[in-house]
Amino acid sequence: MSSNLEDLYREVILDHYRSPRNRGELPVPPATKTEGFNPLCGDEVAVYLEIDSATDTVRDIKIEGQGCSISQASTSMMSAAVKGKTVDGARQLIRAFKALMSIHEHKLEGEGDGSDLAADLEGVRLGDLEALQGVVKFPVRIKCATLAWNTLQQGLDEAGDSSI
């Protein structure tokens, strides 16, 4: 294995891929179900979200779907990271994760240093999620990593709409 490939497939990623967290469904309603697709590779993800409107918190999250190790691991890590978080906290995490993906993309393309995006990362603890930054060296795979996060974002928007 080259160092690039080891970077891509870190142990923590393979762990989430082999033992994905929060797999399953939630009854809809009260939960919402949002589906995401990656047209490039056919990966599919469904995010079930149950938002506690009193505390504006992600009370529960479940994931269904199929995909490569990167998309599965990213989905699993996302679910573990946002469960129990406030909706605002989850949104902040989405921004930070996408910044992590795109800062490196910008650096690779030689477009500035990404300092504008760095603001989104400030003060956010990504923890295990940082293991996914090896993905940015493989631009085709970035969409695998961001699929779950884009779907979560859409889910939070929809859950927000339905609670009004």
């Binding site: 294995m1 080259s2 490939l5 891509l8 490039l40 590779c41 056919g42 199929q66 995909g67 490569c68 190790s69 990167i70 599965q72 493989f138 795979r141 695998c144």
Partner: peptide
């Protein structure tokens, strides 16, 4: 997953296609 296989094959300079092949 097919994409994971292709990624590792690329290490050995083996080019194969992975995906739905425009035949969903």
């Amino acid at each position: 997953h097919a994409h994971d296989i292709s990624q590792v094959l690329d290490e050995r300079a083996v080019c194969v296609r992975a995906g739905h092949h425009c035949a969903k």
